[in-house]
Write a protein that binds this DNA or RNA. Structure first.
Lengths: 197, 197
DNA sequence: ACCTTTATAGACCGGTCTGTATATTATGTC
DNA sequence: GACATAATATACAGACCGGTCTATAAAGGT
């Protein structure tokens, strides 16, 4: 009786992964269920079996999946690089690599969907919000080792906003220069803060 | 033999305005022609008469319209406030007001559409790019009065990215705090740059 | 007033959207 | 192997998509 089968779980995660990629590229409204399923090589019946809540259900899982993935990469990067002078280079460098690798068709897996749904009460938007919160917290935790907690949260939010903005503008312009500049001033912000200006 | 009528121009601009509002709220894919026309109280025949290029044609005009509108407001704000310590407060304050007034359902009329179409060769994306360029240039021109031109361009791009990022994050979170922090650090950036740190 | 052009009006087209229904096939337990 | 359930497969439904078409109405020039 029961217990989910291995094949079922694989199909489910294939759908989530395909959805995450497409939502990141073209947003919520620009991505169709049929396209997701075609990319995941899964039939419609499987989708609505694994995700009875429909497109929203898929989108929530996709956002959470992508959010955790990037969150883990951020944590890993921060753990490796202890030098505050270089830490922003690591973070921004990670996003620059993503941009180039995917020909500026992706960047942040949350931003586009979040903007499209902003101001609504969609549960998908809630998933976007909590993903942002997670990422900010990771950065704040790192900074709180060097400075007091309140200041760390503020600087983390500032750096997070800057990176998000640079990522968006660079992506739209198909040009890394904005992200380069953000990296530079973000580094200055962190260094100045830690050295106590 | 020719000369466009007044009524025609009014319909056309009503369509552009309705489109600009909807594209800003829900992006390119989330906005339908029928919805635009219903909001503009215009029939389909008028739309495809004034915009033979279809949805893309409407979107380009909408982006350009909204871009010029905001550009003019930026110019006006910068002209009134000559104190560099306050200038970022003026700019960010303008966007904060927009967010609150529209219940976080709008923010930047270019960002969402730009992200959805990023990495494509859509002419709509081109309109987004050149709008961003215009805005950056306005800010750079203001700063170049106080500092040399190269530095002004760089700082303008940094401030522009920061504001865009804060605007996006604040909009998604339905919370002005990120934009508040961005305003603070953006002011510091401009002041430090002008005073020559 | 007449006639050309501009503009409006909306029915209509093929296609795609999300989601449902139902039949069939794997899968795991006993 | 029998049996229940997990999972797949696909046809289908109704709404909506962007866009075309033709007919009609308003406006301007002479």
């Amino acid at each position: 009786m029961a217990t989910t089968t291995k094949k079922g779980e694989e199909t489910k995660s294939r759908i989530i992964q395909a959805a995450a990629e497409l939502f990141e590229r073209r947003g919520y409204y620009g991505t169709g269920m049929n396209e997701i399923l075609s990319r995941a090589s899964a039939p419609k019946g499987s989708a609505y079996f694994h995700f009875p809540g429909g497109k929203d259900d898929v989108a929530i899982h996709a956002i959470q999946f992508a959010g955790k993935q990037i969150g883990d990469l951020l944590k890993a990067g921060l753990a490796v690089e202890q030098n505050p002078h270089k830490i922003m280079g690591v973070l921004v460098g990670f996003f620059k690599m993503r941009l180039v690798q995917e020909d500026f068709r992706c960047g942040c897996p949350v931003g586009t969907v979040g903007l499209e749904l902003s101001g609504t009460d969609s549960p998908v938007l809630d998933a976007c919000k909590s993903t942002y919160l997670q990422w900010s917290q990771i950065l704040a935790d790192y900074l709180s080792v060097h400075i007091d907690e309140a200041k760390a949260g503020e600087v983390a939010d500032a750096a997070f906003s800057m990176i998000q903005g640079g990522l968006m503008v660079s992506r739209i312009n198909s040009d890394l220069s904005h992200l380069d500049i953000v990296e530079k001033y973000c580094t200055a912000l962190v260094v100045d803060t830690i050295s106590g200006t």
